[in-house]
Design a protein around this nucleic acid. Structure first.
Lengths: 225, 225
DNA sequence: GAAGGCTCTGTGAATCTGCTGAGAAACCCA
DNA sequence: TGGGTTTCTCAGCAGATTCACAGAGCCTTC
């Protein structure tokens, strides 16, 4: 089930949105402003955030900027009273994925929400990805560090691709295991460490600096230094 | 689904464009400059390229010239900060198909993109295809490597044609099976390997280098070296 | 500073994947 | 009908890949 976080300072509107979306069998979490919302993003990991453009404490634009600064790529639907084209452009440039001008019909909101959630699922995985001097193209299945081609096995390639899709984000061991190996056990298996080791050996050939850092007790990150 | 390649050095604008066009259910690929973009044109075969006029490394005009020099006829929409008529003329003469002056409203961009894509639409499947020293004509159903005619059976011909339509792209086993054999089973069938073997034997007669590479665990690619 | 838990890595075995040859079945065309 | 061509199954092989195990090393905590 999808989770939606609604951030709005108007209690009446908030309640209306909550009812409407709960009725669509969505899991709804609410906050009154951006400041309240940020920790909720961490804890609830919503699939979509609906935020008001104008809010006290921290408005929608600042909120999205803070979100993106933390490398969070959650979809954001911005609600705005103004319909001016500059705002629209600003909202999109600021990192929102869509906007909706108030007042709006509930049906339109529902349609937008579903469209955005569909996009979350259908996000194409065949974009080239890169970080630092690593590049990886899922279409040609070629990966390189600097100008040297890396010869990777299937699992190594998938693992590097996963890391590259979330640069600077710490990926938990269990998350990596379930995304690459497709199960979620708690066993005495150290297959993940093994593959991290394989990747490091290939990535750090001829003395290049380490990019896959281990975060003790949690997992691994792709990060420089 | 159409693929659009966006080439722009401004990360913010790039992201905005990407979001806007992804929302139009387009497949979006991005690059920061012409130098990065050229190989992506080869691998992703976009239906439309959106390029900035002014970019570091290789600017939009040079990029289009290089593209056309390679006989690539992909549509190009040029973004330019300047609105001067000379630039407009230069851009079109340089081989771009349309131009758009910055700043622009997202809606206008979307409209232009759709207009250009409508022009592309009818993509004929019976164009001759070639890669390296292999050529194949779907109309006469003749194929040759270098100057030697290849005598191919129906299935061999279809398989080679499929590979030639996606040079350098790794084609998954299941995709090939469903496109050539029209089913998508999970059985212990190795008919694909057999036909790859047949094709290789004919393509690599008198010691020519291998062009059909196998990608273990995934599928096959047509690629030199 | 020591104990205990994580993490890393080398060795090697089991498994998997893809390639090939032999040949059976289906098809085509006279 | 019959010969040749094409498609496809089967089985065995070789090499690549995956993974288990165990010892060493490192970090954290007390």
């Amino acid at each position: 089930m999808h989770t939606v976080l609604i951030v709005d300072d108007d209690p009446k509107l908030l309640k209306m949105l909550q009812r409407t979306l709960t009725y669509e069998t969505l899991n709804v979490v609410t906050a009154a402003n951006g400041l309240e919302a940020l920790p909720l993003v961490q804890t609830h990991k919503p699939n979509l955030i609906i935020a008001d453009w104008m809010m006290p404490k921290m408005n929608g634009v600042t909120f999205v900027q803070r979100l993106r600064a933390e490398d969070n790529k959650t979809m954001v639907l911005m609600l705005t009273a103004r319909d001016a084209i500059e705002d629209r452009v600003m909202g999109l440039e600021g990192g929102a994925d869509d906007y909706l001008a108030k007042p709006f019909a509930p049906a339109e909101l529902v349609a937008r929400v579903h469209a955005l959630l569909r996009r979350v699922q259908a996000e194409p995985q065949n974009q080239p990805a890169s970080y630092a001097d690593i590049t990886l193209d899922p279409v040609t299945r070629q990966a390189q560090r600097g100008d040297t081609e890396l010869s990777l096995t299937l699992t190594e390639f998938n693992l590097l691709h996963l890391l590259l899709r979330h640069p600077r984000q710490v990926l938990e061991r269990s998350r990596i295991l379930s995304e690459i190996w497709g199960y979620d056990f708690g066993g005495n298996d150290n297959v993940l460490e093994i593959y991290i080791g394989y990747l490091r050996k290939k990535l750090e050939a001829d003395g290049r600096p380490r990019l896959i850092q281990t975060v003790r007790g949690v997992g691994y990150v792709l990060r420089e230094e």
